[in-house]
């Protein structure tokens, strides 16, 4: 059973949810559920995401013009809202990703330091 074990999962750092969503949409339009599943698969279910929190974030990102939404029909033929990356969203993704990698690099440099 996939009952979550919180202690074994990484909590999401502030501000990283946007980056994950942008990344999820680089492979084409998805609805919110689709984004959640993709994140679960690609992180091998190591991230602890409250899936509902995707939605306010999606709305905020749409307001900023990074993504666009449109109602369409899902694989199961139900009405669903699809999100698509805009040009400005693509730019946002690359700059956020770079920022993230610099942070990771700096963090691991610090954490692996052996002597004072």
């Amino acid at each position: 059973m996939p009952s979550p074990k919180p202690e074994s999962k990484a909590d999401l750092l502030k501000g990283t949810l946007d980056l994950l969503i942008l990344k999820a949409l680089t492979f084409g339009p998805r609805h919110g559920y689709g984004i959640a599943r993709w994140l679960e698969e690609s992180s091998r279910d190591l991230l602890h995401i409250e899936e509902g929190s995707l939605y306010p974030a999606l709305s905020r990102m749409e307001k900023r013009g990074w993504i666009q939404s449109e109602w369409g029909s899902s694989e199961t033929n139900r009405r669903a809202k699809y999100y698509r990356l805009t040009a400005s969203g693509r730019g946002q993704l690359s700059s956020q990703a770079q920022g993230w990698e610099r942070l990771v690099e700096a963090m691991s440099l610090v954490l692996h330091k052996k002597q004072a």
Binding site: E51, G52, P56, S59, R60, K63
Partner: peptide
């Protein structure tokens, strides 16, 4: 459980959506 409290999330999503639509 996985989704989070639907009532709370609905409320905050609606608030975000309204601000987005107003701006648009």
């Amino acid at each position: 459980e996985r989704f989070g409290d639907p009532g709370r999330i609905k409320k905050s999503t609606f608030r975000a959506e309204r601000s987005r639509v107003k701006q648009r």
